[in-house]
Amino acid sequence: MNHDAYPDNYIRGILNSVKSIAMVGASPQNVRPSYFAFKYLAQRGYDMIPINPGHVGKDLLGKPFVASLSDIGRPIDMIDIFRNSSHIMPVVEEALTLDPLPKVIWMQLGARDDAAAAKAESVGIKVVMNRCPKIEYGRLSSEISWMGVNSRTLSSKRAPAPTQGMRLSLNRMSVGGGDTAASDRAAKNKTEQS
């Protein structure tokens, strides 16, 4: 997989197929990006599991915090990692000890570890880096268009008005896939420089 620019179908396939998402680094602070994403994905019907050893015994929007991936105790479809690039590898290594393996490992906006990605991909796990599943879900459903964001999708179909807990259709026509060319190039240049 080329991790500089993902085809929309790759992202769409992941978001359409996963049901449970363990979020590593989920924060109870309501101004942190992980809180935003956790809440949004829960509202869109995903089975969310917050992972944060510092908050065990408490819950996040009604879901009890779990100390680590190994402590979840049931199969999970996707791991969403809210940690800096330098803390990705140990999380991926722990994920690779799970049985069954997760289907997807997703690293948040700003997080990228190509070696960890290669390790996960070598055992058949799909990897997404430097993206936010909330933004991608909002983009492919065009819900993010409320914010003037270029969803890079088109549709001539009438969509239902979204309500609480409703899964939205992500099957709109893509216009080019991945990010816009210019922002892709900028992200690639940044990766090459670092």
Binding site: S145, M147, G148, V149, N150, S151, R152, D179, A181, A182
Partner: peptide, 14 residues
């Protein structure tokens, strides 16, 4: 906003 962002090849517009 989305239309002009798309025509210009940007990520978003206001």
């Amino acid at each position: 906003e989305e239309r002009v962002a798309a025509l210009e090849g940007g990520t978003a517009a206001l």
